[in-house]
Each structure stands twice: as structure tokens, then as C-alpha cells.
Write a protein that binds this DNA or RNA. Structure first.
Lengths: 253, 253
DNA sequence: CGTATACTTGATTGTGATCAACGACGGTGG
DNA sequence: CCACCGTCGTTGATCACAATCAAGTATACG
């Protein structure tokens, strides 16, 4: 194995442009503040420390770090992963706009790393302010619990996929999941315009197979006109076909 | 494939013996009420609906069910799993005494099933009472969030294990995890007395390999005097050796 | 004592890993 | 605009880990 030495610097820049406002946030319905009533949004705004920019390939945090801030991903794609001593990498999750990247407070180390796939914008919430917010607005706590439970559900699906499905099934599942999440974020987009900014290596490390094999599976799917792919670009052509391949369970919700 | 048709009835019996008291609960330090101060325990007690008994091999709930109650496992082992249409099963988690089995309320279907491995006792909390409890005791919400985050961390480790590790590494990880959790629950037990009431098929479905292969791996570990196993009984003989085999990451926490 | 469940072992197969080389594309600097 | 280089992707040959198929033995349990 012995792959990339994970030497990217932590490089979260404070965003210099005028920060966007919670009040008019286009992804709020997906995010932690979904539960907040409109009149309160200028107030919750104050609990956000900064908006940050994270360039592609830069680390948001690294396995073992103490992270004293949580984030809502506002724009871009962020990838969560873990590494083994022998250099093998497992991708745990692809975070899309609206997703909450929560730490466990500054006294506990995170057990995974997070890196930007594309240039990303994040809203930062210092842990202490977040705790204060939680104690004052119980509906936000309820929302957090519900977000965590959804994440757990997705993680269970992921375990199922990696543990029991064949390479092609696993990849089909993954494509369907990402596709649906993209549509959810941009309901008006034409399905044929949806694309994922992922390399085959990232797909491989998510699905628990090798990048060589991903290439072969992609070729097969290309030949069947199910997907199209190029340089860090994957496009779904036939979502129905993917569903047939994916071998989904009955209650994937 | 085409395995067992998952036809066990849901069979949660109300426990007839005198219910145990939260106030003197031996596993409270591991459970949801860890955060509750002693003086309040008689009060929290009232939010518990019943204590239940679930016999071995009986289902607590089934994938797709609406579950209107959450549980704290008081005694026994419970297994969470999902199934694929083709009969493949993925075990998601082994719940041990003190673990919280939380539903998402009665309007959302659970995406996995739960079955007792050994006869188990569970404390039941109806969702509405739980919500009331949460609104009155914020420290319990904090505790729930922290439990969920720990569960997430463990699920990430599981994905890593299933996705990137070899069969023997994956099994070694699993044994270490269970061993540590057993010691945590019974700090005074002699390590050589710890054993897991698991069949090789359950181990296989957790690690994402076949039961035949588990048998071969177990034989290898037996030959090296690392574990000992028999009829639904696995015993750790050499935890150090397991650590060497397990290929653990640095920050598994 | 008989039957079901759990486990073992051998033979064979196959999916996906590994090794290796090459090709395509995009970005950068001259 | 072109040459260069690094990243990304493709393809073929070979290998290995674990799956599958198939019988068998032990153990628990009624």
C-alpha cells in the first residue's frame, strides 16, 4: 500500500467576502437551523463565529485532533475518512451543502479526518456557543438529535453495503444515494446535469474496493449507458438501471 | 444464499418479577441516566413504562416497523442487523447491558431489526414520555447526544474494519472491542472468564465474511492459543496477540 | 436417544487485489 | 500556443483471499 502521506496543512481561511445571512440561507431547510423560526434567525446568526473557506484538498481537521468548533457545510463537498497504519483509507461519508459536521467538544479527539473535495465554504460554531444555543433553544437540540439519527441510519446502510454487497452493487447504491442527495439540494436541476466531483480513488475508498476495480466497474456501467465519467466527474444517465443493479433492501428510508 | 426467513415473532413480555430500581441500577453509569443526579432517580423512574423480558432469538423490533418506545438494555445481549432481499444479513451492532436502543419516534420506520442473542431484560421508555423527560432535564439530552456520538464513532470504526481489513484483522478488532466492553461492564471479572455468547454465523455477518471462513480463522487463532471457542462461546486467551493482529489505527478512542 | 443446531474440513471456484504499463486530460509556465 | 508534468483513468496478466459447494463431526436439547 503506502499511499499519500496525508501531509496537507490545515488551512481554513476566514472568508473575506460579506458573510451570508442565516435569514436568507438557501440551505437552511437541510441544516441545523431548520428548526429555528424565521424571527429568531438574526439572533442565532450571532452564534456563528465565522464563515470559512477551505480550498480543495485541504484538511478541515485530522484524526486525533481536538476540534473546538462544529460546522455547517454551506457550499462544496467535504469527505470524512479514516486511515490505517498501512496507508489504507476508508471514506466514511461525503458531506454535501447543509450537512452538519459536529465535533464532540474540545476535550475529545475526533476519530476521523475531514478534507475538502472541492473548494468549500463552512459556517463555524464554537462549541461553547453551541452549548449555550442548545440550552436556550431546545428545538435545535431536537433537530441535532434527529440529524444524528439520520447520519446513523446512513452509516448502517454503508456498513451493509460494504459488508454484503458486490462491487457493482455497492457502487450503484452509492451513486443512487449521492444522486438523491443532490436532487434534494437542487430540486430544479435537470437530472442529466447532476454530477459528482469524485475521483475513482475516492469512490473506491468509500466502497471498500480498489481503484483499479472501480475503473472496471465504471467501464461496465459506461458500456451499458448507466453512467458517464471523466476527470473527477461522474454523471448518472439511467437511474432506473442503477436501482435494478443496487440490490437495495426494502426499508432503506 | 436464501437463509432463515426471519420469522421469529415479536415477543416482548412484560417482566413479572419486581422491577429493578433506577436508584440502585448497577449499570446506570453506562446508560442514559448516567447524567441524572442521585436525588432525582426516583423521579426519572416514572418515565420508564415497564421492564420487559425478551427471550433468546426473539425480535425486539423488525426493519420497517414503527417503534414508539426506546429501550435501555438492562441484561443480556441484543443484536442489531439488516437484511438484503437475497437473504444476506449484516450485523450492525451488538448491544450490551447499559446500551441505549433508541427509536426515532413513532412516525419513522426503523431501518434495521433487533433480536435477542441471549435472554434479555429491557427498560422501556415510551417516546412521548422520553420527549417530556428531555424537555425537563437538559442534562439527559446532553447525555443522549454524547451516546449517539459514541455510537457513530463505533459505526465508523466498523465501516473501516469491514471495508479495509482482512478477515483475521477484522475478527481480531471485533474481539478486542467486545472484550473491552465486557470489562467495562464488569471491571472485577477475571479476563479469562470473559466470554461472548456468539455463534460463528453472527461473527461472520458482523465482519462481512462467511461462516465457513470464520471457522477457519478461529481455527488459526485457536492453534495460536489466542482464543478458545465452542458452542456459541468465544473466549479470549491472549489479548496482546489480538492487538498485534488487529492492525488498529492510532486514534480509535 | 434422536434430531436440530453449531461447527469443521476438504476441494474447487471466483471476485476482486495486485502488479505493471500506458494513455488521456488539465493546468502551468515558457 | 505549445511543451511539460502531474493527476487521473484504462487495460492486461497474474495472484490470493475468501466464497461456494459438499460432507462430515460434535454438542446441546427435547
Amino acid at each position: 500500500m503506502e499511499r499519500r502521506a496525508n501531509d496537507g496543512q490545515l488551512q481554513l481561511r476566514v472568508r473575506t467576502e460579506k458573510p451570508t445571512l442565516c435569514r436568507v440561507c438557501p440551505i437552511r431547510n437541510l441544516a441545523l437551523f431548520e428548526a429555528v423560526e424565521d424571527g429568531l434567525l438574526d439572533w442565532t446568526q450571532n452564534f456563528r463565529s465565522q464563515q470559512y473557506v477551505l480550498d480543495a484538498r485541504r484538511l478541515l481537521y485530522r484524526e486525533g485532533d481536538f476540534v473546538a468548533e462544529s460546522f455547517t457545510l454551506f457550499q462544496g463537498w467535504v469527505m470524512l475518512y479514516k486511515m490505517l497504519p498501512d496507508g489504507k483509507r476508508q471514506v466514511l461519508r461525503f458531506a454535501l451543502p447543509g450537512d452538519f459536521l459536529g465535533s464532540r467538544g474540545d476535550e475529545i479527539r475526533v476519530n476521523h479526518s475531514a478534507v475538502a473535495i472541492t473548494q468549500s465554504i463552512l459556517c463555524g460554531f464554537p462549541q461553547d456557543k453551541l452549548n449555550q444555543l442548545f440550552s436556550e433553544r431546545p428545538e435545535i437540540v431536537t433537530r441535532l438529535i434527529s440529524i444524528q439519527q439520520r447520519d446513523m441510519t446512513q452509516c448502517y446502510d454503508h456498513v451493509m453495503s460494504v459488508g454484503q454487497k458486490s462491487a457493482i452493487e455497492s457502487i450503484a447504491c452509492m451513486m443512487i444515494d449521492l444522486f438523491e442527495r443532490c436532487l434534494e439540494r437542487d430540486p430544479n436541476v435537470r437530472p442529466e446535469d447532476v454530477h459528482f466531483p469524485l475521483s475513482q480513488e475516492e469512490v473506491a475508498d468509500y466502497a471498500g474496493i480498489t481503484l483499479v476495480h472501480v475503473s472496471r466497474v465504471f467501464k461496465e456501467l459506461r458500456d451499458k449507458c448507466v453512467i458517464d465519467n471523466g476527470h473527477r466527474k461522474i454523471r448518472i444517465l439511467d437511474i432506473e438501471a442503477l436501482h435494478k443493479i443496487a440490490n437495495l433492501g426494502v426499508h432503506t428510508d
